[in-house]
């Protein structure tokens, strides 16, 4: 599926005479995805579980960034509050498992809602709740533009962060443990490789959805709304609902990633709701290359690997992380994917 989708740049009309360029880009993308799939499988059969879990972490962070990229890169909506959706998704997994474990209902009035440890239920709930939250936040925030939009999305995320920190029922700042990984019928989700493959499929689906969306009429309208919303409005389409829908889908993808992350760690805490995490997600998207289908993946691989490798070398690792990020932004104009695969035609 990815083979066909990756051949075309999202939201752009195929231009003639760029075949060589395509080959290089396709090669880079296939290598990236291939390595991400093959290395953990090899590691698993060599008995190195740690690397399998590291790959799961990269995959999930990449998926969250894919969601954010839909808002930032394709929609031009610079959200500084996507941690809210990532965290909400995580808390859906945590809270649901907590009640399933305790055999207490999540809600008994007006309707009875029991907890569940079925991942399908959790994912559905996470995606729907994040979509709902994003609908409310987006409806208000999209009235603003530019820096105001950045800051109002941050404000909403901060509200949720402080709420989660001080609300004692689900652990407050201590967070909420998930004792046993939530389950799927027929599969052993506790197995590291199985769980990695679930995450990997999630990432592929998120990327495929983005790609399909951007090739549709909806995607064309979204691109137009980003580039020139006056022109879009004169063609009889109001940019506001287009943006809102994209924002909601973006939040749902990030929320799903949050649910996967909580189950990977067996734990969810307000840290993933903090503005730092929103900033990191943004950094990953920009690092990889804004508005590129494979950008979030490249960014996540680079960021998590740097975090892991530098951390083992020196206690001042964040200094070097900062220097590398600065180097990328100064010398690689269009992120890592821009550096490796060349420029997009619409840049």
């Amino acid at each position: 599926m990815i083979n066909t989708t990756s051949q075309r740049a999202p939201g752009a009309v195929k231009a003639p005479g760029t075949e060589r360029h395509f080959d290089r880009k396709g090669l880079v993308q296939m290598t990236l995805l291939g390595l991400l799939l093959i290395l953990p499988v090899v590691a698993y059969f060599l008995g190195h579980l740690y690397y399998v879990n590291l790959a799961s972490r990269i995959t999930i962070i990449a998926m969250a960034a894919v969601g954010l990229n839909l808002a930032i890169g394709y929609g031009g909506m610079v959200s500084f509050g996507h941690a809210a959706y990532f965290g909400l998704g995580g808390y859906v997994a945590g809270i649901s498992a907590y009640h399933a474990f305790d055999f207490t209902p999540f809600m008994s009035w007006p309707i009875s809602v029991p907890g569940s440890d079925n991942l399908l239920v959790i994912w559905l709930a996470a995606a729907l709740l994040c979509a709902l939250l994003a609908l409310v936040i987006g409806a208000i925030s999209l009235r603003t533009t530019g820096v105001y939009f950045i800051m109002i999305t941050l404000a909403f995320a901060q509200m949720i962060y402080y709420f989660a920190n001080s609300w004692p029922t689900y652990g407050g700042e201590d967070g909420l443990p998930i004792y046993i990984r939530n389950t799927l019928p027929l599969l052993d989700t506790g197995n590291a490789l199985t769980y990695f493959l679930i995450c990997f499929i999630g990432l592929i689906l998120a990327m495929a959805l983005t790609s399909r969306l951007m090739k549709s009429r909806f995607g064309a309208a979204l691109t137009m709304a980003r580039l020139n919303d006056v022109r879009l409005a004169t063609s009889g389409i109001s940019p506001y609902p287009i943006r809102l829908v994209a924002f909601v889908i973006s939040a749902a993808i990030t929320g799903l990633a949050g649910a996967l992350y909580a189950d990977l760690n067996g734990f969810v805490s307000p840290t993933v709701l903090s503005w730092h995490f929103s900033g990191e997600l943004m950094v990953i998207v920009i690092l990889g290359g804004v508005g590129r289908l494979y950008g979030p993946l490249a960014g996540a691989v680079l960021f998590v690997m740097m975090e892991t490798l530098l951390g083992g070398i020196t206690q001042y690792w964040q200094l070097f992380l900062g220097l590398v990020l600065l180097g990328v932004v100064l010398f690689a104009q269009h992120g890592v994917m821009g550096l490796l695969a060349g420029r997009e035609r619409n840049e």
Partner: peptide, 29 residues
């Protein structure tokens, strides 16, 4: 740093100044 970023998108500025936070904080430490 900043001089090179005026003609770049806001997002590049966000990334660069985020990196500067890390550099300043850990450098001070």
């Amino acid at each position: 740093v900043i001089r090179r970023l005026y003609h770049r998108p806001h997002l590049d500025q966000v990334l660069a100044t985020f990196a500067l936070i890390l550099i300043f904080s850990e450098g001070t430490r």
